[in-house]
C-alpha cells in the first residue's frame, strides 16, 4: 500500500515540471515553505529557475552559476500543482505561468533561422 504522505525531498524536489499540455517547463529547483517552530509547516509554492537552484550550492559555485545562467526564478503557487507522479504537473500552461520557451534569449536566435517553425 502506498503511504498517504509525500516525501518532498524525494518525490517533489528536483523533479521535472510539466504544464497543463505536458510541455516541460523547468525543474522543482526549491520549495517555499511557511510556518516556524511550534507552528504547522505549509508549502506555499514551488520555485523554478536558476536563482532558486543556485541557493542550494556552495558560495563560489552559486556565484558562477548565477553569472552564467542568470538568476530568474518563477514562483508557482502550490495550488497550481495538479498531479504528482514522476512529473509535477501544473494546472495552467507554461505561457500563463511565464515559464514558456519564448521568454528565453535562445528563442530570439533560433526562431529567426529558416525551418525553425517546422517539425
Amino acid at each position: 500500500m502506498k503511504p498517504d504522505y509525500l516525501e518532498m525531498a524525494r518525490q517533489v524536489l528536483d523533479r521535472q515540471v510539466v504544464d497543463a499540455n505536458n510541455v516541460p517547463c523547468g525543474k522543482v529547483d526549491d520549495l517555499q515553505l511557511e510556518g516556524g517552530a511550534g507552528k504547522q509547516l505549509r508549502i506555499i509554492a514551488i520555485l523554478i529557475g536558476h536563482g532558486a537552484a543556485a541557493d542550494r550550492l556552495p558560495e563560489l559555485a552559486k556565484l558562477i552559476l548565477r553569472k552564467v545562467m542568470g538568476k530568474r526564478t518563477v514562483s508557482v503557487p502550490w495550488k497550481e500543482v495538479t498531479v504528482i507522479t514522476n512529473r509535477i504537473k501544473l494546472g495552467k500552461t507554461a505561457r500563463e505561468l511565464k515559464l514558456d520557451e519564448s521568454r528565453s534569449a535562445a528563442f530570439k536566435i533560433i526562431s529567426a533561422l529558416p525551418g525553425a517553425w517546422k517539425k
Binding site: 519564448s102 533560433i110 517539425k119
Partner: peptide, 8 residues
Amino acid sequence: RPPKDAAR
C-alpha cells in the same frame, strides 16, 4: 519538436 519550441 520544432526547433523554436525547444530553442535552448
